[in-house]
Design a protein around this nucleic acid. Structure first.
Length: 264
DNA sequence: ATGCATGTTACATG
DNA sequence: ACATGTAACATGCA
């Protein structure tokens, strides 16, 4: 599930643990989520450490601890962060759980496409400072967008929007939503857009990102009723604007939903 | 049982 | 070198 605003929501689920010491670490280091990290080393670094703050960027999360330790988390397709009462039993897919005074801070991920990272650095890790601007950031302005859009100008817009190096945080439903708001079909490419359409696309990226953050990030509320979001999941949905049946196809290997009559 | 899934990446192909 | 397409990952659900 997790895209931009959902990631921000899950990140905030660990807020009650900020400032707390980690009393115990439960870690299932054999799981795929730990690929590339030395799990026992990470567990050692976490034990007795203190959670200081949390950050998100697109679909990525970064937790700052004391002694220059940084815990990176990507939720993949089915990951989530949650808290469990201290006396609660941990569950099957709780691959990482940090016990604090107040609760267990849990990373749960059935499909294990998510990822845990271990970084050590005095200040913000280098890679984090070099990430491209988020769509909600002021730095992501029309000039930046136009320049960035030129990379992969011939690929379908649907695929272009899913490129995390250009549109961090945009995932499958957000890309469909953005194109529906832009009234542009997902098969089109940047190269075919006129100046007017390019502006429409830019505005839709900003608008969908901003409203998603406002509605979803604080408490996982639904996006506005008028959005494609509510109709796109299963075949047979109707376009909120035209009332006509929505179209579905696989574009760039991802299920894509659009409205032929509404989008050109 | 079969097919599909809100993500990423390695590999194959043109 | 580049761009695009597909398989793979591991599990649950309709």
């Amino acid at each position: 599930m997790p895209e931009l605003a959902e990631v921000a929501y899950y990140c905030s689920r660990w807020n009650p643990g900020l400032g707390e010491r980690i009393l115990r670490v439960h870690m299932n280091g054999q799981k795929r989520c730990f690929r590339g990290v030395d799990a026992s080393q990470l567990a050692g670094a976490l034990s007795g450490n203190r959670l200081v703050s949390s950050h998100t960027h697109g679909k990525r999360m970064l937790f700052k601890l004391d002694q220059g330790l940084w815990l990176g988390i990507h939720l993949g397709m089915t990951g989530s962060l949650l808290m469990r009462r201290k006396e609660a039993e941990l569950e099957k897919h709780d691959h990482l759980a940090l016990e604090t005074r107040v609760a267990w801070l849990v990373f749960n991920d059935p499909r294990q496409f998510g990822r845990i990272e271990h970084h050590e650095s005095k200040g913000l890790p280098e890679f984090w400072r070099n990430l491209p601007p988020e769509t909600i950031s002021e730095r992501f302005d029309f000039q930046h967008f136009r320049r960035f859009a030129e990379k992969g100008a011939k690929q379908p817009l649907k695929s272009a929007l899913l490129d995390q190096s250009r549109f961090p945080g945009v995932g499958n439903w957000m890309a469909d939503e953005i194109l529906w708001h832009s009234r542009i079909r997902p098969q089109r490419s940047i190269a075919t857009l006129n100046e007017h359409e390019l502006k429409d696309l830019f505005r839709a990226i900003k608008r969908v990102s901003r409203i998603a953050m406002k509605r979803i990030a604080p408490d996982f509320s639904d996006p506005p009723k008028s959005w494609l979001f509510h109709r796109r999941w299963k075949a047979g949905g109707l376009c909120p604007k035209t009332g006509a049946h929505l179209n579905r196809d696989s574009i760039g290997g991802r299920t894509t939903c659009w409205s032929n009559a509404w989008q050109r």
